[in-house]
Amino acid sequence: MSVDKTTVAKIARLARINVPDERLEPLAAELNGILNWIAELDEVNTDNVEPLASVTGHALPMRDDVVTDGNRLDDVLSNVPEGASGFFVVPKVVE
């Protein structure tokens, strides 16, 4: 499997990273270098092998569904790039 310029543009869009047109070809080459190397995994027979997502071996602990923290508006907004009246501000999304 290898990626072309169009696929790189699609990945960039999914990843929400603006990639200029002239970078698409070089990036495709870089990504293909990595993907071709990763393809080594195809040699491994993984029939009937369960995927391993977590090594802890225990189920995630449950906690009581109660509020343990809150009323920290100033903390939450202390690093905001743009805020107003206790809200995050973003470009207009609804006309």
Partner: peptide, 15 residues
Amino acid sequence: DAYYLKAQKVRRLIK
């Protein structure tokens, strides 16, 4: 499936 799931299966074999 081809990449992520495959890698997780190999991860189990490594463990």
